[in-house]
Computed example of a mutant assay.
Amino acid sequence: MIIIGLTGGIGSGKSTVLEMFKGLGVETYIADVEAKRLMNTNPELITDIKKLIGEKAYIDQKLNRAFISNVVFNNKDTLTALNALVHPKVRSDFKNFIKKSSSKIIIYEAAILFESGSDKFCDYIVTVSANFEDKIKRIIKRDGVSKEQVLERMQHQLNDESKIRKSHFVVNNSNLSDTKIQVETIFNILVKLDKK
């Protein structure tokens, strides 16, 4: 089994690339989605988050994402502390996911793959990159936010250059048909590596 870390900055098109890999029969684990699920269902994690951020972190037993975002984006220490609670639970959940899987290739997709240290358990890393202006346009269109808000979000992530330096493969996602060819090429290389 080969574990691939898939990452890329906000607006790079990670989800598009992930869907392409899925279409080739690769099993996928989306860290952000699973983190939100665990933050809503894991009793120990819920208790710890309430201790850290306060009772307002949950409304009607559901994660109050707007409140939490507001708190952590204005306080880096709280964000670091929250990540220190969530990431170990996600890693443990991923280990269980691997145990149940019979897939030859699994993709672990995470926006903050390097920042969370999750790159350490991946065999290979794929970074999705895109033109800076394209990324901004995509996020504005997708989330209905201002350019200033997009730039603020980008400051919380490693830049593309840093990610690319630490990666084995890079997908330049500026043209969908080109992206598809790049994904298929990487997939074929991984299949060969798995057979070694």
Rank of each mutant, 00 (worst) to 15 (best):
V145A: 02
I10K: 00
I186V: 12
E27H: 08
V86D: 00
I10D: 01
R142P: 05
M1L: 10
D123G: 10
L151Q: 14
M154P: 02
R138Y: 00
K192S: 14
D194Q: 07
E55V: 10
L190K: 01
I10Y: 01
S118P: 01
F67S: 04
N42S: 15
I59P: 00
D119G: 05
N64H: 15
H168G: 14
L85G: 03
K141I: 01
I4P: 00
K100E: 14
P88S: 08
I105Q: 05
M39C: 06
Y108A: 04
F187V: 08
S69G: 15
S162G: 01
E184F: 02
D119M: 03
K100R: 15
N70F: 07
E161V: 06
Q182L: 08
K95C: 03
K50I: 12
E152R: 13
G8V: 11
L113I: 11
V183Q: 01
L113M: 13
K22Y: 11
I30L: 12
S15A: 13
I106A: 04
Q182E: 15
A35R: 07
I136A: 10
D93Y: 02
L45I: 08
F169M: 07
Q61E: 14
L52V: 06
A84H: 06
V71T: 08
N42V: 02
A110W: 03
I98M: 15
E184T: 06
V145G: 01
K76I: 09
G144V: 09
C122R: 00
E55H: 09
S116G: 03
A84K: 15
T185F: 10
K76E: 15
D194R: 09
K36E: 04
I139K: 05
Q155S: 11
A111G: 09
E44D: 13
N70H: 12
V191F: 01
V90E: 01
S102F: 10
N96A: 13
L176I: 12
Y108K: 08
K36S: 02
S116F: 03
I164A: 11
E152P: 01
F73P: 03
I186R: 06
S162V: 10
R37L: 09
S129W: 00
R142Y: 07
P43W: 04
D48F: 05
V191M: 13
N188M: 11
Q155L: 14
N70M: 11
D143F: 07
E109M: 04
Y124M: 09
L79R: 07
N42T: 09
G11C: 09
G25K: 12
